[in-house]
Simulated scan of single mutants.
Amino acid sequence: MISGAHVILYSQDAEADRVFIRDVLGFPGVDAGGGWLVLKLPPAEVAVHPSDEPPRHEFYLMCDDLDAQLREFRSQGVEITRQVSEQRWGRLTAIRLPSGAELPLYEPLHPTAHGL
């Protein structure tokens, strides 16, 4: 039986990104051995989209109130890298990780599966 999912973010500054995810995003973690921090995610869902492009994977964080979340991030000095855009499926933006990578964030306007 499948008991969970494990997401991997590749980073040019993994330690700084781990600390950011733990301390700024507030995701608790465990030491998987040798100081290797593995962080707990909030409830998740997976969608499979059709594409004519080569296969790829994306990782987005979801929130219930994007404006409130962005205010909190700004108060913590987190860089918002994209203006909020209105999509048919939700309100989309992104934040900057310490490594320089972008992490997309959206407020869904569609039914969600993560609470099932």
Rank of each mutant, 00 (worst) to 15 (best):
M1K: 14
M1S: 12
S3K: 14
S3C: 06
G4L: 06
A5N: 12
V7P: 06
V7K: 00
V7I: 15
I8V: 14
I8D: 07
I8R: 12
Y10M: 08
Q12S: 14
Q12N: 13
Q12Y: 01
D13Q: 03
D13S: 07
D13L: 02
A14R: 00
A14T: 04
E15Q: 14
D17G: 01
D17R: 01
R18M: 07
F20K: 03
R22G: 00
R22M: 06
D23L: 04
D23P: 07
V24R: 04
V24Y: 01
V24A: 04
V24I: 15
L25D: 03
G26F: 12
G26R: 08
F27V: 04
V30E: 15
D31R: 09
A32M: 12
G33Q: 09
G34I: 10
L39N: 08
K40C: 09
K40N: 13
K40G: 10
K40L: 12
P42K: 05
P42T: 08
P42W: 06
P43A: 13
A44C: 12
A44I: 10
E45A: 07
A47Q: 11
A47F: 14
V48Y: 11
V48D: 09
H49K: 10
P50C: 05
S51F: 05
E53D: 13
P55D: 11
P55F: 12
P55C: 04
P55I: 12
R56G: 08
H57Q: 15
Y60S: 11
Y60P: 01
C63V: 15
D64N: 12
D65I: 08
A68T: 12
A68L: 13
Q69S: 11
Q69V: 15
Q69L: 15
R71P: 00
R71A: 13
E72V: 07
F73N: 05
R74I: 10
R74F: 00
S75Y: 05
S75K: 10
Q76V: 00
Q76N: 10
G77T: 08
G77N: 08
V78M: 05
E79F: 02
E79K: 10
E79P: 02
E79I: 11
I80V: 15
I80D: 00
T81K: 03
T81L: 05
T81D: 02
R82E: 14
Q83L: 05
Q83Y: 00
Q83K: 09
V84T: 13
V84Y: 06
V84I: 14
S85D: 11
S85A: 13
R88F: 11
R88V: 10
W89M: 01
W89V: 07
G90A: 03
G90V: 06
R91N: 11
L92Q: 06
L92I: 08
T93R: 00
T93P: 03
T93C: 04
A94T: 02
I95V: 14
R96C: 04
R96Q: 14
L97A: 04
P98S: 03
G100D: 08
G100C: 05
G100Y: 07
A101F: 01
A101N: 11
A101Q: 13
A101H: 09
E102A: 10
E102H: 05
L103Y: 02
P104D: 09
Y106H: 11
E107H: 04
L109Y: 00
L109P: 01
H110S: 09
H110Y: 09
H110W: 10
P111V: 09
P111N: 03
T112A: 05
T112Y: 02
A113P: 01
A113M: 11
H114C: 07
G115R: 13
L116H: 09
